[in-house]
Design a binder for these strands. Structure first.
Lengths: 66, 66
DNA sequence: ATAAAATGTAAAGTTTGTTTGTCTTTTTGG
DNA sequence: CCAAAAAGACAAACAAACTTTACATTTTAT
């Protein structure tokens, strides 16, 4: 699983803490997602999608290993 | 979280077991997702999206409680 | 150069997703 | 009507996501 949350966040000019607060998760969760440590739940993915006004499929992408 | 997996599956004319096998999960997982018992992971959502050729956002929808 | 803000990291613990197995109920087709 | 297929349900066990707390490192601005 790849994702471009970091890029979207940069475009929106938000800190990890900002984003975390807006979607109601911990800052570490955002950090871990951006670092590729784990894949967020679908609820989280949809919230991120909504906030950035981008389809989930544009933010998260399957890899061969998934 | 609402989803229309059951409808998409009907359109594709697949059984729960068929769908489960195609995306590599157990039949119970599909059943539970359709029954709204829990929300699948983002990896699963993307696999379902890919199989049905529909955006994740068209298959899964946030509710006020999410 | 320094302080403050932002980011990275990690362990421990809770919650949620997933599997496996088994059984019951409903639907479908002959 | 009857058998087979499909769907629904439930519980135990395990895996993954997520939280919290706490501290270290890097970046930014003065």
């Amino acid at each position: 699983m790849k994702n471009n949350v970091k890029v979207q966040r940069a475009i929106a000019n938000l800190t990890q803490a900002d984003l975390a607060e807006k979607i109601g998760v911990s800052r570490q969760t955002i950090n871990a997602i951006e670092a590729g440590k784990y894949v967020p739940s679908t609820v989280l993915a949809l919230k991120i999608s909504k906030l950035f006004e981008k389809p989930v499929n544009d933010i998260f992408e399957l890899e061969d290993t998934d």
